[in-house]
């Protein structure tokens, strides 16, 4: 499979009045063409900032990249000029936003916003763009009359399909879906995930699915990366990760998600809290919550080790391997 997006050792911070927030501390991953890649982690782990960095939107929020590279289809994304960037956003990489209710301009109909997106990236007359908008709407199972509505006249599920339609309108190579189902109720969530999967098959776009919901991620993703305190601590195929989680954090996460659905007296939680992003990270950031931590974990950042396409950053895992 061809590598579509490649992020290497991405680190960055935001300066706030309270001090410097170390948000990303060496994020590395790659997304292959036409796959669904999941990034899972708790709030504050840096998933959204990773996505926004890939989109080059993070800099608008005061995020400064200290090191690292982002390569999309062999091109250096961080080196894009303004014009390239306008086409890259929406034309090559599209976004399905977190909150569909507020992500469309309240003063324009759904149709006019779809047409606007199409005409930004393709040379189309208004008439052609409208025809395409209706064709895409049909794919997203949006009734034609709904396109004539203003955002405030539509339900959350419908709006989510419309922002989805806006995302796929220009046939991007990659769609970043940042918690696209958080604002929806559970039944609509499942429908939407299925719809996303269908669209992906048809359009041949890769999906980067960002979520804190282990159920949703395990339902649609081919590969999953687990993020913790601004790093990807483990990355593997869905089955590899769920059946054979190696990083202690991943194991704890899967345990607390209770994927098997067995009835138990209590939910498993992970003791402790994530590290303060104000402190510059030293060693493994999970060390003080980890049941297997060793002195080395507090002093040195564990490097990435790969076995059968299963990547993990953990000193304890390395020790286990050297034993076997």
């Amino acid at each position: 499979m061809n590598r579509l997006l490649w992020v290497e050792d991405l680190s960055g911070h935001i300066d706030t009045p309270k001090g410097r927030l170390h948000i990303l501390n060496g994020v590395s991953f790659c997304v292959h063409e036409n796959e669904c890649f999941g990034i899972i982690g708790e709030s504050g782990s840096g998933k959204t900032m990773t996505a926004l960095s890939v989109l080059r939107y993070a800099e608008r929020l005061g995020f400064q990249i200290d090191a690292g590279a982002i390569v999309f289809e062999g091109e250096d994304v961080l080196g894009f000029n303004k014009r390239r960037l306008l086409h890259y956003n929406g034309g090559r990489v599209a976004v399905i936003p977190q909150d569909p209710m507020t992500s469309l301009d309240p003063l324009f109909t759904a149709e006019s916003q779809l047409v606007e997106t199409l005409r930004t990236h393709k040379k189309l007359t208004v008439k052609q763009a409208k025809a395409q908008a209706y064709a895409i709407a049909e794919k997203m199972r949006i009734a034609p009359e709904k396109l004539k509505c203003y955002p405030f006249q539509l339900s959350g599920g419908m709006l989510q399909r419309i922002v989805g339609a806006a995302a796929i309108a220009c046939h991007p190579k990659m769609i970043i879906a940042d918690e696209p189902t958080t604002a929806l109720d559970v039944t609509v969530q499942l429908q939407y995930l299925k719809l996303l999967r269908d669209i992906q098959d048809e359009y041949g776009a890769a999906i980067v699915f960002i979520s804190h919901d282990m159920h949703a991620v395990s339902m649609i993703c081919d590969r999953i990366a687990v993020m913790y305190a601004g790093r990807i601590v483990e990355c593997a195929s869905k089955n590899g990760l769920l059946r054979n989680p190696r990083h202690p954090y991943t194991r704890a996460l899967i345990r607390s998600a209770n994927l098997s659905g067995e009835v138990r007296g209590k939910y498993d939680t992970i003791d402790g809290v994530p590290p303060d992003p104000l402190a510059k990270p030293v060693g493994c950031s999970f060390a003080d919550r980890c049941p297997h931590s060793m002195p080395r974990c507090f002093a040195e950042t564990p490097p990435k080790t790969t076995r059968d396409d299963h990547e993990v950053c953990c000193w304890a895992c390395q020790k286990d391997e050297s034993k076997t």
Binding site: Y57, V95, P97, D99, T102, S103, P106, T117
Partner: peptide, 17 residues
Amino acid sequence: ESDHVKFARLRGLNERS
């Protein structure tokens, strides 16, 4: 700073629009 302006930017609209 609103969500819809953010989404407009992420759709690739130019600064003037």
